[in-house]
């Protein structure tokens, strides 16, 4: 087993439990609104907590399907620049590259970053199976048990996501460069936008602070 593969499997195993718990939460909350069948299929074919929770929030708030879809896709708009960032590190046919791109999620994207804008595609590919299984199986449990299960958000597992992302962020911030300035700016921008923009926009705007890199380093 190559070291990239082993690292990817280990890291995704760490996240499999909180991912499954989030899937259960989604299933529990979404099944009464959309029905268990569509909820399970949605997790299997969309595989994106940000988009699915975004859509659900709009629907439960009384918004229509068009607004729900728009909000969800806006929440996922960050995948467009992430795809272009990942692309130079990919080789092979367009179909192979597209398949690797489909497997990108936030955690695997950050985990695969080798510094200086290079990514290890193997890490993305081998992080995918456990993350996907956790999300889909969690949704199945939540959707089918919606009437009997408590929301696992109350267990303290929700904090695992920010701490996991911090675990990927801290090494990035230790490198000499503008990372710290960009991260501080991103934090302020994201928090300022939370009260006033739709779901997903704060994270998208935070990601956009990477554009500070357009200016040549002093």
């Amino acid at each position: 087993m190559s070291s990239s593969k082993a690292r990817a499997v280990r890291a995704s195993a760490t996240l499999a439990l909180p991912t499954a718990a989030l899937g259960v939460t989604f299933g529990v909350l979404a099944a009464p609104v959309l029905g268990a069948g569509p909820v399970i299929v949605m997790s299997a074919v969309v595989w994106s907590g940000a988009a699915q929770f975004g859509a659900l929030t709009v629907l439960t708030g009384g918004g229509g399907v068009a607004l729900a879809a728009g909000t969800a896709l806006l929440a996922n708009a960050r995948f467009l620049p992430m795809g272009f960032a990942f692309a130079p590190s990919l080789s092979g046919s367009p179909l192979r590259r597209a398949l690797a791109g489909m497997l990108v999620v936030d955690a695997s994207f950050a985990l695969a970053h080798r510094g200086e804008g290079r990514f290890d595609a193997e890490v993305v590919v081998w992080s995918a199976p456990l993350q996907y299984a956790g999300w889909v199986l969690g949704t199945v449990v939540g959707a089918l048990g919606a009437s009997t299960l408590a929301d696992p958000g109350s267990w303290g597992l929700d904090v695992l996501f920010p701490v996991f992302y911090l675990g990927l962020l801290v090494p990035e911030l230790r490198t000499a460069g503008r990372q710290l300035v960009v991260a501080a700016t991103a934090a302020v921008v994201a928090l300022a936008l939370v009260p006033v923009t739709p779901e997903g926009v704060p994270v998208l705007a935070a990601a956009a602070t990477a554009l500070l890199g357009l200016k040549d380093a002093a």
Binding site: L169, E172, A186, L191, A210
Partner: peptide, 22 residues
């Protein structure tokens, strides 16, 4: 390339602060 290198810390910071404080 400089922008791409900064995308990871920028994105992660956005995810950390929103999933902690919102």
């Amino acid at each position: 390339t400089r922008v791409i290198a900064l995308l990871t810390p920028a994105l992660l910071t956005g995810l950390v602060v929103t999933s902690t404080f919102s």
